[in-house]
Amino acid sequence: ENVVSAPMPGKVLRVLVRVGDRVRVGQGLLVLEAMKMENEIPSPRDGVVKRILVKEGEIVDTGQPKIELG
């Protein structure tokens, strides 16, 4: 899985990584606000952040790609 998608609709509060960052499985990639709760979205695997496809403040839909890992 190279693309991390939104598990639920919500607002991107914070992006916790930058392009080029090495990430580990379970590491937080971003914080999504859904139903007035903050949810940290974890990396599904070890890898390197290739692209960030969302911006802080953006509203995302379920299944929308957010971060691409290499």
Results as ranks from 00 to 15, higher is better:
residue 43 S to G: 02
residue 49 V to P: 02
residue 48 V to L: 09
residue 39 N to V: 15
residue 39 N to G: 05
residue 25 V to P: 07
residue 18 R to S: 12
residue 11 K to Q: 07
residue 36 K to M: 13
residue 8 M to P: 04
residue 45 R to D: 04
residue 24 R to A: 09
residue 61 D to S: 14
residue 60 V to T: 11
residue 2 N to V: 14
residue 49 V to G: 01
residue 40 E to Y: 13
residue 52 I to Y: 03
residue 45 R to Q: 10
residue 10 G to E: 03
residue 32 L to R: 00
residue 32 L to Q: 01
residue 12 V to S: 00
residue 65 P to M: 08
residue 49 V to R: 01
residue 2 N to G: 10
residue 48 V to N: 04
residue 42 P to C: 14
residue 51 R to K: 12
residue 20 G to A: 05
residue 7 P to A: 12
residue 35 M to R: 11
residue 25 V to H: 10
residue 10 G to S: 05
residue 13 L to C: 07
residue 34 A to K: 05
residue 8 M to A: 08
residue 50 K to T: 13
residue 5 S to I: 13
residue 23 V to E: 01
residue 61 D to K: 15
residue 57 G to Q: 06
residue 15 V to P: 01
residue 41 I to F: 06
residue 62 T to F: 12
residue 51 R to E: 07
residue 30 L to W: 05
residue 3 V to S: 06
residue 4 V to W: 05
residue 7 P to Y: 09
residue 57 G to S: 04
residue 46 D to G: 07
residue 41 I to T: 03
residue 66 K to E: 15
residue 64 Q to R: 07
residue 33 E to N: 05
residue 26 G to H: 06
residue 70 G to R: 12
residue 24 R to G: 08
residue 13 L to D: 02
residue 43 S to D: 02
residue 62 T to N: 08
residue 5 S to D: 06
residue 24 R to C: 12
residue 63 G to M: 08
residue 68 E to S: 07
residue 64 Q to S: 08
residue 12 V to K: 01
residue 10 G to N: 02
residue 46 D to R: 07
residue 21 D to Q: 14
residue 45 R to P: 01
residue 26 G to L: 04
residue 49 V to L: 00
residue 55 K to N: 08
residue 68 E to Q: 09
residue 38 E to R: 10
residue 26 G to Q: 04
residue 63 G to C: 09
residue 40 E to K: 08
residue 5 S to T: 13
residue 19 V to F: 03
residue 16 L to I: 06
residue 53 L to W: 12
residue 43 S to L: 02
residue 46 D to H: 08
residue 23 V to G: 01
residue 41 I to M: 05
residue 20 G to R: 04
residue 70 G to K: 12
residue 21 D to R: 03
residue 29 L to T: 02
residue 22 R to P: 10
residue 67 I to K: 01
residue 1 E to W: 15
residue 17 V to Y: 00
residue 32 L to W: 08
residue 35 M to G: 13
residue 24 R to Y: 12
residue 12 V to G: 00
residue 18 R to G: 09
residue 41 I to R: 00
residue 52 I to C: 05
residue 58 E to W: 09
residue 9 P to G: 13
residue 29 L to V: 07
residue 60 V to Y: 05
residue 24 R to N: 10
residue 43 S to P: 02
residue 62 T to D: 08
residue 54 V to K: 00
residue 62 T to L: 12
residue 10 G to W: 09
residue 47 G to A: 09
residue 39 N to T: 14
residue 37 M to D: 07
residue 69 L to K: 02
residue 6 A to E: 04
residue 40 E to R: 09
residue 33 E to A: 09
residue 39 N to Y: 15
residue 50 K to L: 15
residue 47 G to K: 01
residue 43 S to Y: 02
residue 16 L to A: 01
residue 2 N to K: 09
residue 2 N to E: 11
residue 31 V to Y: 03
residue 53 L to T: 03
residue 61 D to A: 14
residue 47 G to C: 06
residue 45 R to V: 13
residue 65 P to N: 07
residue 25 V to I: 13
residue 4 V to A: 05
residue 27 Q to V: 05
residue 46 D to W: 07
residue 54 V to F: 02
residue 35 M to L: 12
residue 25 V to F: 12
residue 64 Q to Y: 07
residue 58 E to H: 06
residue 31 V to R: 03
residue 30 L to K: 00
residue 39 N to C: 15
residue 26 G to D: 04
residue 23 V to Q: 01
residue 43 S to M: 01
residue 60 V to A: 03
residue 2 N to R: 09
residue 6 A to T: 06
residue 60 V to F: 04
residue 41 I to D: 01
residue 54 V to H: 01
residue 32 L to E: 00
residue 3 V to F: 15
residue 38 E to F: 10
residue 48 V to K: 06
residue 63 G to H: 09
residue 35 M to V: 08
residue 48 V to G: 02
residue 14 R to N: 04
residue 6 A to C: 13
residue 44 P to R: 04
residue 53 L to H: 08
residue 63 G to F: 08
residue 6 A to W: 07
residue 8 M to R: 09
residue 57 G to A: 04
residue 11 K to C: 09
residue 56 E to D: 08
residue 25 V to E: 12
residue 69 L to V: 08
residue 62 T to W: 10
residue 54 V to D: 01
residue 50 K to M: 13
residue 58 E to T: 07
residue 11 K to F: 07
residue 32 L to N: 00
residue 7 P to T: 13
residue 4 V to I: 13
residue 2 N to W: 15
residue 9 P to E: 07
residue 27 Q to W: 05
residue 11 K to V: 11
residue 19 V to T: 07
residue 64 Q to A: 09
residue 21 D to T: 07
residue 1 E to R: 13
residue 33 E to W: 15
residue 1 E to G: 13
residue 41 I to L: 06
residue 65 P to Y: 07
residue 60 V to H: 02
residue 7 P to W: 10
residue 56 E to G: 05
residue 20 G to D: 04
residue 22 R to M: 11
residue 38 E to K: 10
residue 16 L to W: 02
residue 59 I to A: 08
residue 23 V to L: 03
residue 67 I to S: 02
residue 37 M to R: 13
residue 33 E to R: 08
residue 2 N to C: 15
residue 65 P to I: 11
residue 63 G to D: 08
residue 66 K to V: 15
residue 1 E to C: 15
residue 69 L to P: 00
residue 70 G to D: 14
residue 50 K to P: 01
residue 28 G to H: 08
residue 17 V to I: 07
residue 22 R to A: 11
residue 31 V to I: 14
residue 52 I to Q: 02
residue 10 G to K: 02
residue 59 I to H: 12
residue 4 V to M: 05
residue 38 E to I: 12
residue 64 Q to H: 09
residue 12 V to Y: 00
residue 5 S to R: 15
residue 22 R to L: 12
residue 4 V to E: 03
residue 6 A to Q: 04
residue 38 E to H: 11
residue 29 L to I: 06
residue 25 V to L: 12
residue 46 D to E: 09
residue 45 R to K: 11
residue 68 E to K: 06
residue 21 D to V: 06
residue 56 E to M: 09
residue 24 R to H: 12
residue 64 Q to L: 05
residue 17 V to L: 02
residue 54 V to L: 02
residue 8 M to L: 09
residue 2 N to H: 14
residue 16 L to N: 04
residue 70 G to C: 15
residue 67 I to V: 09
residue 36 K to V: 06
residue 68 E to L: 15
residue 50 K to F: 11
residue 22 R to H: 13
residue 39 N to I: 15
residue 60 V to P: 02
residue 51 R to N: 10
residue 41 I to N: 02
residue 46 D to P: 06
residue 16 L to P: 03
residue 5 S to Y: 15
residue 61 D to M: 14
residue 53 L to I: 07
residue 3 V to P: 06
residue 1 E to Y: 14
residue 65 P to W: 10
residue 39 N to H: 15
residue 5 S to C: 15
residue 4 V to R: 03
residue 56 E to I: 13
residue 51 R to V: 09
